[in-house]
Design a protein around this nucleic acid. Structure first.
Lengths: 210, 210
DNA sequence: TTGCTAAACGGAACATGGTTCCGTATCGTC
DNA sequence: GACGATACGGAACCATGTTCCGTTTAGCAA
């Protein structure tokens, strides 16, 4: 069974740790700034687990022992903080797509397993799904990141399954992913609601009518 | 084609207009209070159309030419106001269930049409679907009202279709309705997202595997 | 080691939105 | 016309996201 990397697997973020990628010899960040960013990411991850992604910024700042201004200097908007916290897991999910396609019996099986991965991710992140769909500007970067990274993967899986004649070919990855994301909303707040089940039905509905 | 009553069909609300239903000779409400409640409902309906159900309470009060306190006296919480505004249409939807069942070729067709009715309702009410799923306490009454009124209808349709051997019998109405509601979130803010389509797929997924 | 400055910090202050409270105005009755 | 119950308006309160700015500090150079 495929699983995403551990939630605590974001110790060192190679891209954002020090200095900007642009410019030849851009001055590297001050040590305390780098340290604070790490502290902040850990605090946010921890608070997200207990209070959900909609936890007040002040709570995260408090947990990190830092002022709110510090958060906004490192992460221009809350969405950027969320992206940073979950980047590794989203990357893992994106990379799992081609791997599943290569290792599964059928493209449809790969698609199904990949969607499961995505659902598991969303369902275990209290409130993430809801925030993902919020039309609130300011979450635009969050929205964009998820879509930019995952839609191409989903497209690839959908096309493979369609080419194999397993599913209808008139459903776009963007629409499907948003649908799946929507179905995951509130999955953790009501035990009677079974998001995984509904997603299964949705995927079942993709099958070509016999 | 079945359609819900016009959005402006809530002129006189027989139940809540004057006096309480409890008590033998409960004193009837003052005329200005009754008038204000009507004005408020009209203003809210109008604001909901242009700014969505999440419009600030102050906006509704302003539109009605009334203080915010007045809103809260008539409607203890925002959710109560929303319920009051849409009560007629929800009732119409609930009543359409048995009617469709009686007039359709198959129970599955009735179910499908009824779900369409529900989806049309949600999709045309900017932001309603999102608010419906909000786990924010305070929207409990809204949540409860929709579920109390519509789940039994949906259950009836599901059971009829299951008894006819058209669909699987292991999906509860509550789960299905929440799923459909979720799929409708954000349907009006992004033209690329096609909630109706996804709901169709979900309903298709209910069919017994051949 | 000491001094200096850009960088970073903290948290008060501001903006927005839901909700409560209470002094005032009004209705309906006597 | 007077009076008590009812309803009204909107200021005030609380919670939250975000910005701003005076203060502190890291890192470098003399």
């Amino acid at each position: 069974m495929f699983r995403l990397a551990s939630p605590w697997g974001r110790g060192s973020d190679a891209v954002t740790d020090s200095g900007e990628s642009a410019g030849p010899a851009a001055r590297s960040k001050r040590a305390d700034a780098r340290r604070n960013k790490e502290t902040l990411l850990d605090a946010a991850a921890s608070v997200f687990v207990t209070s959900g992604v909609e936890a007040p910024v002040r709570d995260i700042a408090a947990k990190a022992g830092v002022g709110t201004g510090t958060i906004y200097r490192h992460f221009p908007t809350r969405a950027d903080l969320i992206v940073a916290v979950y980047r590794h897991q989203v990357e893992a999910c994106a990379e799992a797509g081609p791997a599943l396609l290569a290792n599964s019996a059928t493209p449809h099986a790969a698609l199904s397993q990949w969607i499961n991965l995505f659902v598991d991710f969303l369902v275990t992140k209290h409130g993430l799904a809801a925030v993902l769909q919020s039309d609130n500007a300011g979450f635009n970067t969050l929205h964009a990141y998820f879509l930019d990274r995952l839609v191409p993967v989903c497209t690839q899986l959908l096309e493979a399954a369609a080419d194999a004649g397993e599913i209808r070919s008139d459903v776009e990855a963007l629409v499907l992913m948003r649908g799946v994301g929507n179905l995951c909303i509130g999955a953790d707040s009501d035990p009677r609601y079974d998001a995984r089940r509904l997603v299964e039905l949705l995927i079942a509905g993709l099958r070509l009518p016999q």
